[in-house]
Nucleic acid binder design. Structure first.
Lengths: 220, 220
DNA sequence: CAGGCAAACGGACCGCGGTCCAGTTTTCTT
DNA sequence: AAGAAAACTGGACCGCGGTCCGTTTGCCTG
């Protein structure tokens, strides 16, 4: 296991759901030593370059280490494993998106009615994922941990909160996971790249889904 | 790549969606040579034993080969890759389930109204996945191909058909993928093993989801 | 400025998934 | 029955992700 990287105190899992989501683990980097910080930057830059040049598949841990003139062990110490490195590469845009729906302008940010925000949320995620698709796919952790990654937790937490406002008496956690599932990069890839659907259709599908899920009671 | 195993003509992908799903690739094994068939059986048996003894993680290709007194190359020739081997291990119950909803007694099989069948379908899949969970997780292909595996195609195809009957004017393919997403082994694992939810809650969640998704028009 | 120590480094090392191909076995043909 | 083509076999081989541990380096304290 890659557990117990000394410098990452794991942020101590705030026991129960905090009612307001903090800006996701912004206290992530516990003051690296100077050389460590420098190497971290070099590694990220090297990795980004490799992605650009040879695609995500070309991002070999050894290659990254070499390209950054750094030992292989260093890469693992810093990022834990390959997934960690790739996630670090996506971290920037992830935080950006998060900031947008936590504190940005409506309809994505607070201020709009929850259902509106859900619609906007889906569009935003779909757009962002469909760029970056290759990286998003490559960064997927092994199946057993797929839903435990901090960024994903943040997304599903947010959706849960919105759902609680929109359909208070439903099992919003489960509903949220369902919605999040629709935004899974692997699904997006399947539908757009393999089935050839245009992104607009996925967006329409999201809107329809949100509408159906947030309908309060059967017409009957 | 592991493509081009001479003996597997790839079954030629029946171009468009067949209106009636055949019993999923039942013409899979194009008459193996005698010794090959024998080795195949030995390998599956050995693999099953290893799963039972050391868990899915203990199923090393080399270990399986050794346990079956067979060369490593043989394993790969037969099953393509690790995922293929694991899927072969699950094949039996997959076909069983498929037979049940294609031709078994209602409410799972034909005869019941489509929404009824959807409810039963979810319960059946949830139950089956929650046993076998470990194997199901381990058998998961790399993200990019997750939705292309034949068994999964069969499931989502079936759901699509049922949805077309229940909500004819919706984008049933997308809706079906959403529902299938709820039944993803990785999600089941996350919710039951990591969040500690009882299976009953997931079943209730499924019913709620099906109800919401198949509601025809908003109450307004 | 010395010196001590935690943190960071780097590369040898390991195990596993996957490939390859020379040699063997089976099946088909005549 | 014999011989050749096709199919199968096994294990050496490769690359990569991940671990380990002896060595080096930056930082803080006196």
């Amino acid at each position: 296991m890659s557990a117990s990287l000394p410098p990452f105190p794991k942020a101590g899992e705030p026991s129960s759901e905090p009612l307001l989501l903090e800006i996701a683990s912004s206290a992530d980097e516990p003051c690296l030593r100077a050389d460590a910080a420098r190497n971290r930057a070099r590694l990220l830059e090297a990795a980004a370059r490799l992605v650009a040049e040879h695609g995500a598949a070309g991002v070999t841990m050894e290659a990254v280490a070499a390209a950054a003139s750094v030992g292989k062990g260093t890469v693992f110490r810093r990022f834990g494993d390959r997934t960690g490195l790739l996630m670090a590469l996506l971290d920037h845009s992830a935080r950006q998106l998060q900031a947008a729906f936590l504190g940005g302008p409506p309809p994505l940010g607070p201020g709009a009615p929850p259902v509106e925000r859900l619609h906007a949320f889906g569009r935003a995620v779909l757009r962002q994922s469909s760029e970056q698709l290759e990286l998003q796919l490559a960064a997927q952790p092994e199946p057993a941990r797929r839903f435990s990654s901090p960024p994903l937790r943040a997304l599903s937490g947010h959706v849960t909160l919105l759902l609680r406002q929109a359909v208070p008496d439903a099992d919003c956690v489960l509903l949220a996971q369902t919605l999040i599932g629709y935004l899974d990069p692997a699904l997006i890839h399947h539908l757009t790249k393999e089935c050839g659907m245009p992104l607009e259709r996925l967006e329409a599908g999201w809107s329809d889904l949100v509408a159906r899920v947030t309908r309060t009671e059967p017409p009957r």
